[in-house]
Amino acid sequence: MTEPIRLHFEVDGENFASAGAASEAVKMRLKQIGVDPAVVRKVSIAMYEGEINMVIHAKGGRADVAIWPTHVELVLSDDGPGIADIDLAMQEGYSTAPDAIRSLGFGAGMGLPNMKKYSDEMKLESEVGKGTTVTMRINL
């Protein structure tokens, strides 16, 4: 296979209820391909955290997924406010989420650390005022 399966999702920043729809769709496909459930779990958690971040911090964005025979590549990009201090953002428990979001159970500051934990490679690129792109690779 020289070309992977490519999937594209627009992640709606206005709609909390639909956050997670893209990771759900990816999970369904990985199950149908017969990917090891433990790996499916890593992909869904990592992707869901990325989706939620775009919804709560960047008013939405895009998710591009490529499924290769050897790995899954997830690219989550947005045109939101960007992250000024990436090292700080990567720390467990660090969050700038407002109280209203926390009361919904989000904003524990574990999203980026979990994305790092559940992926085999992760790259976080961000420019203040321009947006953020997270690229993750998870081996099958």
Partner: peptide
């Protein structure tokens, strides 16, 4: 019972998924 798997062989399943998309 893996009834939703497109194929028992993962590589073939991937190719089938490609065609489905």
């Amino acid at each position: 019972m893996p009834v939703f798997k497109l194929d028992q062989n993962m590589f073939v399943a991937l190719q089938k998924m490609q065609k489905v998309e």
